[in-house]
């Protein structure tokens, strides 16, 4: 029984990680339709931000908290530069965007190798986040929840809430949604679409930075960490449905739960295969993803 609960929690925590890494992508890929292969390297930039800050700030807890906004700004700024220099010129050429951003991702990886060295680096996690809380203890063993996972879960939910609020309740969000739904009409109504694109890309990339900070608690920090997770992030957004935040949230937790439960009864490799098969089957049934944006545009 304990094990069932801890597996359920594992599913939720895998889901939280997936959600956090896919959230930024659901903005840039989901809302703006830009296939940004360098998104994983923005996550990496966030993780290295923690590493750099810890050289300056000694307390592990303080540096992690400081790293959250700093990583948001760093990754966001990288996103804006990428958008201004390259992606802006390629909005009508999706496949070229894919190639160009993939090239950028390789460049950034090499840059990280040159600056920080090829081996992984280590960061100190605050003592509070390396432990766990005991929920209940039974004869079969204790049910414990890892603090780092709870932190990531809270962070992911907070980010979703903030993003929803931004998109639903602010003038900026209204403009973003207008551009996503019909770029030409939005431009005709006097919205500066270029500026909206820049802001959206800033927020989407910034969220990748935040995800990077969270990942330092659970995974390796190295030049290739971005490539390891970018596929999962794309899967979540594609299955969730382009342009839909709620789809991303639901699918992240569904995939996490599925991975955890299948893996528990089989092995990690079999679970990966089965999850992929399920995704392929699902996309056969609903190629547009879980939710779709209904518009009257012809595009």
């Amino acid at each position: 029984m304990t094990l069932v609960f801890s597996q359920l929690f594992t599913g939720i925590s895998i889901g939280a990680v997936l959600l956090l890494i896919a959230l930024g992508l659901s903005l840039t890929f989901g809302q703006m339709n830009v296939i940004n292969m360098a998104h994983g390297e923005f996550i990496m930039a966030g993780a290295y931000t923690v590493y750099v800050l810890q050289q300056v700030i000694s307390g592990a807890g303080v540096s992690l908290l400081v790293a959250l906004p700093v990583a948001f700004l760093v990754a966001g700024a990288m996103g804006v530069v990428l958008e201004r220099l390259l992606i802006r010129r390629l909005y009508t050429r999706r496949l070229d965007t894919l190639l160009v951003t993939w090239g950028v991702s390789l460049l950034l990886q090499q840059l990280a190798r040159d600056v920080f060295g090829a081996p992984n680096v280590q960061t100190q996690a605050p003592e509070l986040l390396t432990g766990s809380v005991k929920i209940l203890s039974t004869g079969a063993g204790d049910l414990v929840l890892a603090n780092s996972r709870l932190f990531i879960l809270a962070l992911a939910l907070l980010a979703v809430a903030a993003l929803t609020l931004l998109l639903r309740a602010t003038p900026l969000g209204r403009r973003v949604r207008a551009v996503v739904q019909n770029r030409d009409l939005a431009a005709a109504s006097g919205i500066a679409t270029g500026r909206v694109d820049r802001v959206t890309f800033f927020i989407g990339s910034g969220l990748a930075g935040v995800a990077g900070v969270a990942l330092t608690l659970v995974g390796p920090i190295g030049p290739t960490m971005g490539t390891n997770i970018i596929i999962d992030a794309f899967l979540v957004v594609v299955v969730g449905g382009i342009g839909q935040l709620k789809g991303t949230v639901i699918v992240a937790f569904a995939l996490g739960m599925m991975q955890s439960l299948v893996e528990y009864s089989t092995t990690i490799s079999v679970a990966k295969v089965l999850v992929f098969l399920a995704i392929v089957a699902f996309l056969q049934w609903r190629p547009q993803g879980l939710f779709t944006l209904r518009t009257r545009s012809l595009a």
Binding site: T10, V17, A140, Q259, T267, I268, A271
Partner: peptide, 20 residues
């Protein structure tokens, strides 16, 4: 006995199994 693909970075389930 558990094998993870090279490069795999999600170990929560394996850890649960080890612990149990």
């Amino acid at each position: 006995e558990e094998y993870a693909p090279l490069g795999s970075t999600e170990f929560s389930t394996i850890t649960n199994k080890v612990k149990a």
